[in-house]
Write a protein that binds this DNA or RNA. Sequence first.
DNA 1: ACTGGTACATAGTAAAACTAAGTAGGCGAA
DNA 2: TTCGCCTACTTAGTTTTACTATGTACCAGT
Lengths: 107, 107
Amino acid sequence: MNGTTEMLKGILEGIILEIINEHETYGYEITSRLQQMGFDDIAQGTVYTVLLRLEKKQLVTVSSKKSTQGPMRKFYALNAAGQVELATFWQRWQFIEGQMNTLKGAK
Amino acid sequence: MNGTTEMLKGILEGIILEIINEHETYGYEITSRLQQMGFDDIAQGTVYTVLLRLEKKQLVTVSSKKSTQGPMRKFYALNAAGQVELATFWQRWQFIEGQMNTLKGAK
DNA sequence: ACTGGTACATAGTAAAACTAAGTAGGCGAA
DNA sequence: TTCGCCTACTTAGTTTTACTATGTACCAGT
Protein backbone atom coordinates (compact mmCIF):
# COMPACT_ATOMS: atom_id res chain seq x y z
CA MET A 1 0.00 0.00 0.00
CA ASN A 2 1.76 3.11 -1.09
CA GLY A 3 0.94 6.76 -0.52
CA THR A 4 -0.47 6.17 2.92
CA THR A 5 2.15 8.17 4.76
CA GLU A 6 1.49 10.90 2.28
CA MET A 7 -2.12 10.88 3.30
CA LEU A 8 -1.43 11.03 6.97
CA LYS A 9 -0.68 14.64 6.21
CA GLY A 10 -3.37 14.94 3.57
CA ILE A 11 -6.68 14.18 5.20
CA LEU A 12 -7.86 17.75 4.90
CA GLU A 13 -7.29 17.74 1.18
CA GLY A 14 -9.39 14.59 0.89
CA ILE A 15 -12.17 16.07 3.00
CA ILE A 16 -12.31 19.13 0.78
CA LEU A 17 -12.28 16.95 -2.32
CA GLU A 18 -15.28 15.07 -0.95
CA ILE A 19 -17.14 18.26 -0.05
CA ILE A 20 -16.62 19.61 -3.55
CA ASN A 21 -17.75 16.29 -4.99
CA GLU A 22 -21.08 16.53 -3.20
CA HIS A 23 -21.87 19.67 -5.12
CA GLU A 24 -20.06 22.53 -6.77
CA THR A 25 -19.05 24.97 -4.04
CA TYR A 26 -16.66 27.74 -3.07
CA GLY A 27 -14.06 28.48 -0.40
CA TYR A 28 -16.09 30.43 2.06
CA GLU A 29 -18.86 27.84 2.09
CA ILE A 30 -16.34 25.01 2.55
CA THR A 31 -14.84 26.86 5.49
CA SER A 32 -18.19 27.20 7.25
CA ARG A 33 -19.03 23.59 6.45
CA LEU A 34 -15.79 22.47 8.12
CA GLN A 35 -16.57 24.69 11.07
CA GLN A 36 -19.99 23.07 11.43
CA MET A 37 -18.35 19.67 11.29
CA GLY A 38 -16.38 20.63 14.37
CA PHE A 39 -13.08 21.30 12.64
CA ASP A 40 -13.20 24.76 14.10
CA ASP A 41 -9.47 25.17 14.38
CA ILE A 42 -8.92 25.08 10.66
CA ALA A 43 -7.78 28.54 9.67
CA GLN A 44 -9.63 30.41 6.93
CA GLY A 45 -6.49 30.77 4.89
CA THR A 46 -5.78 27.06 4.96
CA VAL A 47 -8.86 26.25 2.91
CA TYR A 48 -7.78 28.64 0.18
CA THR A 49 -4.27 27.23 0.05
CA VAL A 50 -5.73 23.75 -0.36
CA LEU A 51 -8.05 25.01 -3.07
CA LEU A 52 -5.18 26.67 -4.91
CA ARG A 53 -3.24 23.43 -4.62
CA LEU A 54 -6.11 21.41 -6.09
CA GLU A 55 -6.27 23.84 -8.94
CA LYS A 56 -2.54 23.59 -9.55
CA LYS A 57 -2.76 19.80 -9.53
CA GLN A 58 -5.58 20.08 -12.04
CA LEU A 59 -8.08 18.09 -10.04
CA VAL A 60 -10.80 20.71 -10.24
CA THR A 61 -12.44 23.13 -12.62
CA VAL A 62 -13.03 26.69 -11.51
CA SER A 63 -15.65 29.23 -12.43
CA SER A 64 -16.32 32.66 -10.98
CA LYS A 65 -19.88 33.57 -10.25
CA LYS A 66 -21.49 36.66 -8.81
CA SER A 67 -22.73 36.66 -5.26
CA THR A 68 -25.67 38.67 -4.03
CA GLN A 69 -23.91 39.26 -0.75
CA GLY A 70 -20.31 40.14 -1.52
CA PRO A 71 -17.46 39.75 -3.97
CA MET A 72 -17.31 37.10 -6.69
CA ARG A 73 -17.30 33.48 -5.63
CA LYS A 74 -14.91 30.95 -7.10
CA PHE A 75 -16.85 27.74 -7.60
CA TYR A 76 -14.97 24.49 -7.69
CA ALA A 77 -16.02 21.18 -9.22
CA LEU A 78 -14.10 17.92 -9.51
CA ASN A 79 -12.96 16.84 -12.93
CA ALA A 80 -12.18 13.23 -13.90
CA ALA A 81 -8.71 13.33 -12.36
CA GLY A 82 -10.21 14.77 -9.18
CA GLN A 83 -12.67 11.92 -8.95
CA VAL A 84 -9.92 9.36 -9.37
CA GLU A 85 -7.93 11.13 -6.66
CA LEU A 86 -10.95 11.13 -4.36
CA ALA A 87 -11.52 7.40 -4.87
CA THR A 88 -7.87 6.74 -4.08
CA PHE A 89 -8.17 8.88 -1.00
CA TRP A 90 -11.07 6.84 0.37
CA GLN A 91 -9.21 3.63 -0.31
CA ARG A 92 -6.24 4.86 1.67
CA TRP A 93 -8.49 6.11 4.39
CA GLN A 94 -10.19 2.75 4.76
CA PHE A 95 -6.86 1.04 4.95
CA ILE A 96 -5.68 3.31 7.72
CA GLU A 97 -9.00 3.10 9.52
CA GLY A 98 -8.76 -0.67 9.48
CA GLN A 99 -5.23 -0.69 10.82
CA MET A 100 -6.15 1.78 13.51
CA ASN A 101 -9.06 -0.35 14.65
CA THR A 102 -6.85 -3.42 14.83
CA LEU A 103 -4.32 -1.50 16.84
CA LYS A 104 -6.95 -0.13 19.16
CA GLY A 105 -8.70 -3.44 19.56
CA ALA A 106 -5.49 -5.17 20.56
CA LYS A 107 -5.26 -3.03 23.66
CA MET B 1 -12.53 20.15 19.54
CA ASN B 2 -9.02 21.46 19.35
CA GLY B 3 -5.78 19.86 18.28
CA THR B 4 -7.41 17.86 15.54
CA THR B 5 -5.63 19.60 12.71
CA GLU B 6 -2.44 19.03 14.59
CA MET B 7 -3.19 15.36 14.66
CA LEU B 8 -3.86 15.12 10.97
CA LYS B 9 -0.11 15.32 10.80
CA GLY B 10 0.41 13.26 13.92
CA ILE B 11 -1.21 9.91 13.37
CA LEU B 12 2.12 8.16 13.17
CA GLU B 13 3.16 9.51 16.53
CA GLY B 14 -0.05 8.14 18.03
CA ILE B 15 0.46 4.75 16.43
CA ILE B 16 3.95 4.52 17.86
CA LEU B 17 2.70 5.61 21.26
CA GLU B 18 0.16 2.79 21.15
CA ILE B 19 2.73 0.23 20.07
CA ILE B 20 5.01 1.22 22.92
CA ASN B 21 2.08 1.07 25.29
CA GLU B 22 1.42 -2.56 24.42
CA HIS B 23 4.84 -3.49 25.72
CA GLU B 24 8.25 -1.94 26.16
CA THR B 25 9.96 -2.00 22.80
CA TYR B 26 12.66 -0.43 20.64
CA GLY B 27 12.98 1.35 17.32
CA TYR B 28 13.93 -1.49 15.07
CA GLU B 29 11.09 -3.66 16.33
CA ILE B 30 8.60 -0.82 15.91
CA THR B 31 9.76 -0.34 12.34
CA SER B 32 9.21 -3.99 11.45
CA ARG B 33 5.87 -3.98 13.25
CA LEU B 34 4.76 -1.01 11.10
CA GLN B 35 6.01 -2.80 8.02
CA GLN B 36 3.95 -5.86 8.91
CA MET B 37 0.93 -3.63 9.39
CA GLY B 38 1.29 -2.57 5.78
CA PHE B 39 2.82 0.83 6.41
CA ASP B 40 5.73 -0.27 4.31
CA ASP B 41 6.54 3.16 3.00
CA ILE B 42 7.48 4.54 6.39
CA ALA B 43 11.19 5.21 6.27
CA GLN B 44 13.44 3.73 8.91
CA GLY B 45 14.72 7.13 9.91
CA THR B 46 11.23 8.44 10.49
CA VAL B 47 10.60 6.06 13.37
CA TYR B 48 13.74 7.21 15.12
CA THR B 49 12.91 10.88 14.70
CA VAL B 50 9.49 10.22 16.24
CA LEU B 51 11.14 8.32 19.09
CA LEU B 52 13.57 11.16 19.71
CA ARG B 53 10.64 13.58 19.71
CA LEU B 54 8.74 11.50 22.25
CA GLU B 55 11.82 11.50 24.43
CA LYS B 56 12.21 15.25 24.12
CA LYS B 57 8.54 15.76 25.01
CA GLN B 58 9.12 13.52 28.02
CA LEU B 59 6.36 11.07 27.21
CA VAL B 60 8.58 8.00 27.49
CA THR B 61 11.32 6.50 29.60
CA VAL B 62 14.37 5.05 27.88
CA SER B 63 16.73 2.25 28.82
CA SER B 64 19.53 0.67 26.84
CA LYS B 65 19.79 -3.08 26.84
CA LYS B 66 22.15 -5.48 25.15
CA SER B 67 21.01 -7.42 22.15
CA THR B 68 22.28 -10.87 21.25
CA GLN B 69 22.17 -9.99 17.59
CA GLY B 70 23.60 -6.55 17.19
CA PRO B 71 24.27 -3.23 18.86
CA MET B 72 22.49 -2.00 22.00
CA ARG B 73 18.74 -1.56 21.86
CA LYS B 74 17.05 1.52 23.24
CA PHE B 75 13.87 0.35 24.93
CA TYR B 76 10.99 2.76 25.30
CA ALA B 77 8.09 2.70 27.75
CA LEU B 78 5.30 5.21 28.26
CA ASN B 79 5.30 7.25 31.43
CA ALA B 80 2.19 8.86 32.96
CA ALA B 81 2.35 11.86 30.60
CA GLY B 82 2.68 9.48 27.67
CA GLN B 83 -0.42 7.60 28.72
CA VAL B 84 -2.40 10.83 28.98
CA GLU B 85 -1.17 11.82 25.54
CA LEU B 86 -2.16 8.43 24.14
CA ALA B 87 -5.66 8.71 25.58
CA THR B 88 -6.02 12.17 24.05
CA PHE B 89 -4.82 10.82 20.76
CA TRP B 90 -7.50 8.13 20.67
CA GLN B 91 -10.16 10.68 21.51
CA ARG B 92 -9.10 12.87 18.62
CA TRP B 93 -8.90 9.88 16.37
CA GLN B 94 -12.45 8.81 17.20
CA PHE B 95 -13.69 12.30 16.52
CA ILE B 96 -12.09 12.37 13.11
CA GLU B 97 -13.18 8.84 12.33
CA GLY B 98 -16.76 9.81 13.13
CA GLN B 99 -16.66 12.89 10.94
CA MET B 100 -15.11 10.95 8.12
CA ASN B 101 -17.83 8.32 8.28
CA THR B 102 -20.51 10.97 8.21
CA LEU B 103 -18.87 12.57 5.22
CA LYS B 104 -18.49 9.29 3.46
CA GLY B 105 -21.98 8.14 4.24
CA ALA B 106 -23.51 11.29 2.82
CA LYS B 107 -22.20 10.39 -0.61
C1' DA C 1 -19.80 57.18 6.11
C1' DC C 2 -19.30 53.10 8.89
C1' DT C 3 -19.82 48.59 10.40
C1' DG C 4 -20.20 43.86 9.70
C1' DG C 5 -20.62 39.87 7.00
C1' DT C 6 -19.09 37.86 2.73
C1' DA C 7 -15.15 36.29 -0.12
C1' DC C 8 -10.42 35.46 -1.74
C1' DA C 9 -5.13 35.83 -1.63
C1' DT C 10 -0.50 35.38 0.10
C1' DA C 11 3.98 35.97 2.64
C1' DG C 12 6.38 33.89 6.23
C1' DT C 13 6.72 30.20 9.78
C1' DA C 14 6.33 25.70 12.14
C1' DA C 15 5.66 20.86 12.40
C1' DA C 16 5.98 16.31 10.62
C1' DA C 17 7.72 13.02 7.64
C1' DC C 18 10.93 11.88 3.84
C1' DT C 19 15.48 10.90 1.58
C1' DA C 20 19.83 9.64 2.08
C1' DA C 21 23.73 8.61 4.17
C1' DG C 22 26.53 7.25 7.93
C1' DT C 23 28.12 4.52 12.25
C1' DA C 24 28.50 0.25 14.44
C1' DG C 25 27.86 -4.57 16.65
C1' DG C 26 27.37 -9.64 16.00
C1' DC C 27 27.13 -13.79 13.21
C1' DG C 28 27.66 -17.19 9.68
C1' DA C 29 29.71 -18.62 5.33
C1' DA C 30 33.46 -18.73 2.02
C1' DT D 1 39.51 -14.20 8.83
C1' DT D 2 37.28 -11.34 6.35
C1' DC D 3 33.27 -10.37 3.89
C1' DG D 4 28.46 -9.77 3.63
C1' DC D 5 24.17 -9.49 5.93
C1' DC D 6 20.98 -8.52 9.37
C1' DT D 7 20.48 -5.92 13.45
C1' DA D 8 20.23 -1.21 15.49
C1' DC D 9 20.55 3.76 16.02
C1' DT D 10 21.63 8.76 14.32
C1' DT D 11 21.36 12.92 11.82
C1' DA D 12 21.65 16.57 8.06
C1' DG D 13 18.95 18.50 4.62
C1' DT D 14 14.50 18.74 1.98
C1' DT D 15 9.50 18.62 0.97
C1' DT D 16 4.79 18.88 2.19
C1' DT D 17 1.07 20.61 4.69
C1' DA D 18 -1.11 23.52 7.71
C1' DC D 19 -0.85 27.75 10.62
C1' DT D 20 -0.53 32.79 11.67
C1' DA D 21 -1.23 37.02 10.22
C1' DT D 22 -2.45 40.33 7.22
C1' DG D 23 -4.32 42.50 3.21
C1' DT D 24 -7.76 43.39 -0.42
C1' DA D 25 -12.37 44.10 -1.78
C1' DC D 26 -17.51 43.83 -2.49
C1' DC D 27 -22.13 44.70 -0.66
C1' DA D 28 -26.08 45.76 2.66
C1' DG D 29 -28.16 48.06 6.24
C1' DT D 30 -28.00 51.75 9.56
